[in-house]
Design a protein around this nucleic acid. Structure first.
Lengths: 338, 338
DNA sequence: TGCGGCATTCAAAGCGATTTCAAATTTTGA
DNA sequence: TCAAAATTTGAAATCGCTTTGAATGCCGCA
């Protein structure tokens, strides 16, 4: 069923039918109703490719992911938020999986020249993210989930990682902890750097020196966290508290603590960053987990909003949001033993 | 940079340039090289919408997800596999997030009439899945991840859930367990039914009666599993073994066992189904987890393959694959106490 | 020399929508 | 009552590509 068929069926021109369906004013109300009713009854839908070619808009936003590590639980939560908002505008997400960084760059170039998507979401940026630079050079509208320092206006939404870590660390210090381990994300990512800055700020504001051996950088997997926590617990003096970068990390730390014959919340405190996974709830852990909490799904919803604003023409430099992070204290953190 | 511009730049017609780039035979080798080189140098890429309109192919496959529960860790692993294969063909995944079942149906209808995607992947089917029926009526090529019973040929790939559960249950029975709890997926899904069938088959083949109170159905979340396992452990006699539907489920069971003051692998055995998450490894749990193991990411890769075959014209009834499931015994399972 | 055959190239017709510009019809106002 | 204005409709151009069908030039062979 093409527009042409529908028009013939109605005894009208394509022009009029198109206008009727798209809500243009210059069409008789009776005609419009008749068109709408018939289109509905016949199940007419404009051909997506034709519509895109004619309008120049693709009705989709792009997400380029490096398969192995990036399409994990964080990304899927983020996508869930993103998609739920985009669905309201009948837009969808075009996911491109790439192997390498080079492929990722190529994917963006291709996206630009093939006009496959109207905008792109960029995530997990590095401190000076070349992809962001590339996207602005290519003039592809994009919104960054996170922050980066580049010489171009960037629309972004980020959470206050620095503030979150500063408060969590400060809280532990105030409880009397002196050796606090930071299981941070991979080096070079802005959020990792920000978290480290917050951590260091809390220490230095209380005049406490820091031990580089207590800071580690890794992926947020249960396994990596277990190994790191285990080896840190063998240090003498051992850390009395851990800051875990994600809930997966917390699971690994938890395991290491148990295996060392210690009890979380009594012998060792843990505060984890919680991106609010529906299937892994800090409140339902045992003991319940103290967290710095910020919903990544909500962030996805909002990033979708911002993307729509950017597409509507709002200048990138006016699109920036920094979200506060809650510190939620539960059983896994307390004063150090002794 | 349009084809027209490129053609003018080269002093050739659009026809020749198009043919040169698309590898048609009737073009001079020297010309082809010149075209290819210039296109590369100028960074020409065909406009995706125009190409799609002209060829009738959209270069994308669709995935419709109900936001909240479906876009979880399982789906993201599956997508990672799917996408890595599709990327080789420069195809991408169009993700549509919907709220309700009605929205999902509408999304398929829209996909059909707008020709937004070349094919669709259907997942987590029910025993008689109406969506599958709809898709075959709409004549949208699709591949099912899982199985369903409908009156139409369906291309599918599934794992042998029945066999897996039968073996796992049989193994526990042979170790001497008599009260084995099954924490199954939600009722109505084919995989849940298959697992229950396998479970029951193992019991009945050994002449052991089954207690319906030991079977539960829920989402695969840590929280639901915890609650269910907890209440089962309060039964008298309590189950001495658990079959956990996923690694998330296993985490909840693990927690319930601990909270009851019991030790996993000694007082209570657990065998979990493992979809092989890179961030949550059965080998790295404490104790290490016995599992029925089948990589969901690999399944994604293969489903992509099958989809391409279907698009190439292979009849759906010839596309069906049943994958065996490994039983991997580790520390979390052993003979019952006493 | 003339002609069929081959290798190349091109002009133009789609693909299915939107949109410009013009035409037809109805309403309005003096 | 009639011209002007407003309303409503339509023909045709356009978006950027592929593909059909025709044309061009060159070669070898009788």
């Amino acid at each position: 069923m093409r527009l042409k068929d529908l028009a013939e069926h109605l005894g009208l021109s394509q022009t009029t039918v198109s206008r009727a369906l798209n809500g243009y004013p210059e069409v008789n109300e009776a005609t419009r109703r008749r068109v709408a009713e018939t289109a509905e009854r016949l199940g007419y839908r404009p051909n997506a490719s034709a519509l895109r070619l004619a309008t120049g808009r693709s009705g989709a936003i792009g997400l380029v992911l490096r398969g192995a590590h990036e399409l994990g639980p964080h990304m899927s939560e983020f996508m869930a938020g993103l998609g739920s908002k985009l669905a309201e505008q009948e837009m969808d997400i075009v996911v491109t999986i790439v192997e390498s960084y080079a492929d990722e760059i190529a994917a963006y170039r291709r996206a630009a020249s093939s006009q496959k998507v109207d905008a792109v979401i960029l995530h997990s940026p590095t401190v000076n993210d070349e992809r962001a630079t590339l996207l602005s050079e290519l003039k592809i509208p994009f919104v960054l989930h996170g922050r980066t320092n580049i010489n171009a206006p960037v629309a972004w939404l980020d959470i206050d990682n620095t503030g979150a870590m500063e408060r969590a660390t400060g809280h532990l210090l105030d409880l009397g902890h002196r050796r606090i381990a930071l299981l941070n994300g991979v080096k070079g990512r802005t959020f990792s750097e920000h978290r480290e800055i917050g951590y260091l700020a809390a220490l230095s504001s209380r005049g406490i020196s820091f031990d580089p051996a207590l800071i580690s950088n890794s992926l947020f997997t249960d396994e990596a966290a277990f190994r790191l926590a285990q080896s840190m617990l063998e240090m003498r003096p051992a850390p009395t508290a851990f800051l875990a970068g994600s809930m997966m990390t917390a699971l690994g730390v938890f395991r290491a603590i148990r295996q060392a014959g210690l009890v979380m919340g009594r012998d060792v405190s843990v505060i984890a960053h919680d991106d609010v996974f529906p299937y892994l709830n800090a409140d339902n852990m045992f003991p319940t987990m103290s967290t710095t909490r910020s919903s990544i799904r909500q962030a996805g919803v909002r990033v979708a909003d911002l993307t729509l604003q950017v597409l509507a023409g709002k200048p990138a430099e006016q699109v920036r949001e920094l979200w506060p992070v809650e510190l939620v204290l539960r059983e896994s953190s307390g004063p150090p033993p002794g």
